[in-house]
Every structure is written in C-alpha cells, then in structure tokens.
C-alpha cells in the first residue's frame, strides 16, 4: 500500500511537467508584452527593455521554462505582474476561501445526495421517489448562475433570511446559498447514482442471503447494500471534488465570493501570467491528490481492488 502511494506520487511529476509546458506555450503565444502592461503608457523603449531583462521574459522560451521549474522546485511560484507580490501569497489569500466553499458544497453533496438517493431507492415508486427524481432533473437542467440568482432573490431579497453575497465575517450564514448553488448539479447526480446503484445492489443474491440470515431490513440496507452501492458514488464524488475546487468561477462571480476561481479569471483578463500558471498548477496538484485519495477509499470499499498482488486464489 505504501509502495503504491509512493509510486502514485512519483507519477504526478510528469503530469506537472506536462501541465506547465502547455500553460507556458499557450501564454507565450499571446502577442502581448507584460512589460507594457506593468509600465504606464508612454514608457521609453529603454525602460521597457530594462524591465523585460529584469523579469527574464526577453530570454528564449525554454530558458524561461527551466528557470520557472527551477524556482518551482524551491517552492517559488513567481511574482504577480500586477500586484507586485509573490503568487504564493496571492493564492494563499484566495485558496482558503475556495476550499472552504468547496468543502461546504461537498458535505452538502455527500450527505444530502446520498441520503435522498437511499430514501428514493428504499421507498421506490413512492411520493418521495418521484419528488427526488423530479427535483434532481430540475437541478441538472437549470444553469448554475441562474439558480444562484433565484436563491439570492428569494432567500436574500424577499425573505431576507440569508446574506445576498460576499463572505462577510465568514460565518455559516454566508456559506449556505453559494454552497448549495455550487453543489446543486453534483448533488443531483449523486442522488441519482445512489438511487440506481442502491436498487441494483438490492437485487443481488447476497442481499437475499442477508435477509435469509435473519437480519433486519435496516441492517441489510445499512451494512450489506450500502457499502457495495457506494462504489460508483465514490467515483462520482471523486470526479466532482476537483471540479468543485476549481470550477467555482460562476458561483464565485454570482455571489462575489473572494475565491481562487474568480482570481484566476481576473488574472487571465489582466494577462497576469504567473498567477494564471501558479493558480492552475496548484489546482492540478489538488486534483491529483484527491484522485489518489479516492483510489485509496476504493480499496477500502472493495477488497477485490488491491494494489499489491500477493494474495492468491485457493
């Protein structure tokens, strides 16, 4: 197991090299001079050249790349052109907000999604099942930003229960609407997958065996069905995790949430290359680490997936 994790971490290195290479080339293709963005209009040619030399962007691409990677190994993500601050400190400002929002969304997604899915499966064809089916279909179809605005209108403006936007003092009230908005689509998928996976699992022979042993329906569902039914759900949640971490641009914009999605978006508009590359890179790393965690959770859920093949059949 430890060997497997080490191997997986080593496999991340080529992915990171690949991602940075692609980002570098894409940004190099933009025919815009960062130096002229930093200096005001009317700066002399000499001043621009000096700045370029100082920033190192007058060198060939491969030199720039190697220098960037060299710094990266030392944990230096470069300096923002716009804010004249280290990228790491900018990301450190925004990332915690995004991660908190993502965590809130994930918790909602997992708990609400799985519980509604189980209820729909166990009470199949009932009123609750229909309610879950209809509301999940709606949640998937409706655009996220529209849903966010509707929430703002109803709960913020008309009812006045929740703050309309921003993080305020960071209390829980500020999280509710953005987190539900962010979680809406994936929550609907989780509920659907849980329902169908649960129904499929309940039709297995080992469920009949469990009943034939004399277990109560609660034990059969909670012990024998749930663990098996969770396998596809974990895949889905795992895939969603990364999206929630980085894909919150719409939600963060609608709710004016000071997160990294919004920060990268602005950085792209402002050609703030180091922030774009640094932010994306951290996002990729988070995605990779989450995937690793999901694979480990898999192995716990399904003993047929083992990493070291020492055990054999008899």
């Amino acid at each position: 197991m430890l060997y497997y994790i080490l191997r997986r971490i080593l496999q991340m290195v080529p992915v990171i090299i690949g991602v940075t290479l692609i980002l570098f080339m894409l940004i190099y293709m933009i025919p815009e001079d960062p130096a002229s963005l930093i200096l005001q209009k009317g700066a002399t040619e000499q001043a621009l050249a000096n700045l370029r030399a100082k920033m190192g962007i007058d060198r060939p691409l491969h030199i720039q790349y190697l220098r960037y990677m060299g710094n990266l190994v030392r944990g230096d993500l470069g300096t923002s052109y716009r804010y004249r601050r280290p990228v790491s400190s900018i990301l450190a400002d925004y990332y915690p907000n995004s991660i908190r929002l993502a965590l809130a969304a994930i918790i909602i997604e997992i708990f609400v999604g799985i519980i509604t899915g189980i209820i729909a499966a166990v009470k199949r064809y009932s009123f609750w099942d229909t309610l879950v089916t209809v509301s999940t279909t709606l949640a998937v179809c409706v655009p996220v930003f529209w849903l966010g605005m509707i929430f703002q209108n109803i709960f913020g403006l008309r009812l006045g229960w929740l703050p309309i936007s921003g993080m305020g003092d960071g209390s829980l009230r500020y999280y509710i609407m953005p987190a539900f908005t962010l979680a809406s689509v994936s929550l609907a998928y989780v509920a659907r997958i849980t329902r169908s996976s649960m129904l499929e699992t309940m039709s297995n022979d080992y469920i009949t065996t469990a009943f034939a042993k004399g277990l109560s329906p609660g034990m059969v569902i909670g012990k024998h069905a749930l663990k098996n039914a969770m396998i596809p759900v974990v895949t889905l949640v795992g895939l969603n995790l990364g999206t929630l971490m980085g894909g919150a641009v719409l939600t963060e914009t609608v709710f004016n949430w000071p997160g990294v999605g919004r920060a990268i978006y602005h950085a792209i508009l402002e050609r703030d290359t180091p922030v774009v590359i640094g932010g994306t890179l951290v996002l990729v790393m988070i995605f990779l680490i989450l995937n690793l965690i999901i694979d480990i959770v898999y192995a716990y859920l399904d003993p047929r997936i083992r990493f070291d093949r020492r055990e054999s059949r008899v």
Binding site: D205, Y206, G214, P303
Partner: peptide
C-alpha cells in the same frame, strides 16, 4: 426463524456471498 431454525443455501455461491466482507 430465518437463518436460525430454518436456513437457506442458494444456487450461485459466487453471487450469494457479499463481496466486500
């Protein structure tokens, strides 16, 4: 009564045991 006074053995042992325990 189930599994206690009256027990059952099913047709397909591969499917009748829970794979995750």
């Amino acid at each position: 009564y189930r599994g206690n006074r009256i027990s059952m053995v099913f047709q397909d042992p591969a499917a009748s045991l829970n794979p995750v325990y």
